[in-house]
Structure formats: structure tokens, C-alpha cells
Design a binder for these strands. Structure first.
Lengths: 121, 121
DNA sequence: CTCCATACTTACACAACTGTCGGTACATGC
DNA sequence: GCATGTACCGACAGTTGTGTAAGTATGGAG
């Protein structure tokens, strides 16, 4: 039983920001957390909400988030199967991080779009 | 002349947090920014400050940060060469992000160390 | 008896990322 | 002359990440 991924453990020796990056730096992870901050999602709901993510990648990212203790996975023994994802307390404590990243990402988005248009011209 | 990396442009279609991750999600990048928030660094100084990063990777990360407009690179025509790195205004606006990630990373570090010790036992 | 829906998993392949090693340029000190 | 120091760059290899396609299980609908 793994308690936390090796890359997170390795980052301990460098810097807290690297620990954070190794936990939520994967593609889609912060977007997943951003959605889960609003409530519980089923797998298929997340898939549609997150965007152009493949099933395989979404499943793997969710497992990693679960391993690192950020996401709780509740399986219902039904057919067709139902699985619900929600944030743990640790995951919910990402709220400020998500807010900061979201705000800064919006700033960069404006820069990027401007630069892109200039380049296209 | 590239104005911003493709992965940043691609992330525009998903979510601001993905834009932010694609810009600072690379290994060492936030640590580099964290140091540069304190002032200007030469290449070798950064290398020693950041930790176990290879020269090649540090150089490449710095170039990416430069391409994305977060870092300014000042080259002095001297021998031996001297290059100084500093944050642009956009890069400096990462201060809140770095603070949030640093604080959350410290929380996760404590969790990880506890889990690690339990597992070792 | 076949199809459908859900939440995956595995196999495979390709791309991206990262480290190691060797090399470059050249003024200065020994 | 020869080594030294700085800030890299290029080729190569290994690891990690990501997508596509196909398969699994099972009860209910038709």
C-alpha cells in the first residue's frame, strides 16, 4: 500500500514549492481540484467537465491524487458502476493555491493572447 | 522568434490554472522564481542555490521562463562570461502564487514525512 | 439474446522531459 | 604554454507522461 508517491517524497529534500508542484503539477490535476472544490463528481461528470482529457489519463491522475491523500474515492457496488470523487481535508486546503493560480493564469492568458495575435499579424 | 511556448498557448483553451501550470509547472521552475523574488542571480549562483539541478536543465528552464516573459536575461560581454537573471514584472506578479504554494507545500511536507515514517516502521 | 451504460484497465506507441558527458570561447594567472 | 573559470550547447540515453484502441464486468431494456 503506497502512502504517497515517490516524486513527492523526493521533493521534500529540495523546497516546499517543489513538493506542491510534484503533487498538483501534473496535467489536469489542478483543474480537477478546482472542479472538486465545488462539490462531488462522478467519473464521467469530471471527464466532461475537465475538457479534452483521455479516460486513461483522468483515471491515473485521480489515483495519484488519491494516493497523495488529496482526493477521496467512494465506490458504490452497483451496476452500472458508480464512483464518486471528492476532496479530502488536505485537498480542500488547496483552495488558496487554486485561487492564486487561477488569478495569475488569467493574467498570463491575456499576455499570451496578445502575443499570439501580434505574432499572427 | 518565439513569443510564448506552445504548451502555454494550448492551455488557453482549457482553464487558467492549466495555463499557470504549463508556465511554472516544470521541475525547478517555481524554486527558481522563488529565489529570483529575492533579487538578481548569476547562472552559477542559481545553480548552487536551487539544489540538485543539472546545468543543462537549469539552462533550459531559464530559457523557457524567458520565452514566456517571466524572466529577464542580461548578458555581459566579458570573459569569463557573466549572465544575470531577474524577474520581469510578470514574473514578479507570481509572488502570491509562490507564497500559496510554499505554504501548502509545507503542510504536505509534514503529512508526507509522517506517512513516510509510519511506512518505514 | 443482443445492446447499452459506466468506470475503468491493459497493451502499445509516441512524445516530452531530464541527466550525463563532452565540447566551446577566451582573458587571466602560474 | 597550460590550466582555470563561466555559461552555456549538442548528442545520446533513460525515464516518465500521454494518447489511442480495445477489452472487462454486469444488470436491465428491447
Amino acid at each position: 500500500m503506497e502512502v504517497m508517491r515517490a516524486s513527492v517524497i523526493n521533493a521534500l529534500e529540495v523546497c516546499p514549492v517543489e513538493v506542491a508542484i510534484s503533487a498538483v503539477g501534473g496535467a489536469w490535476k489542478l483543474t480537477i481540484v478546482k472542479h472538486l472544490l465545488a462539490g462531488t463528481f462522478r467519473f464521467g461528470e469530471l471527464r466532461r467537465a475537465v475538457g479534452p482529457v483521455s479516460e486513461r489519463t483522468l483515471a491515473r491522475q485521480l489515483r495519484e491524487l488519491e494516493t497523495d491523500g488529496l482526493v477521496h474515492r467512494e465506490v458504490y457496488a452497483e451496476v452500472p458502476p458508480r464512483v464518486e470523487y471528492s476532496l479530502t481535508e488536505l485537498g480542500a486546503s488547496l483552495r488558496e493555491v487554486v485561487a492564486a493560480m487561477d488569478a495569475w493564469g488569467a493574467v498570463l492568458s491575456r499576455e499570451a493572447e496578445t502575443a499570439w495575435q501580434v505574432r499572427q499579424a
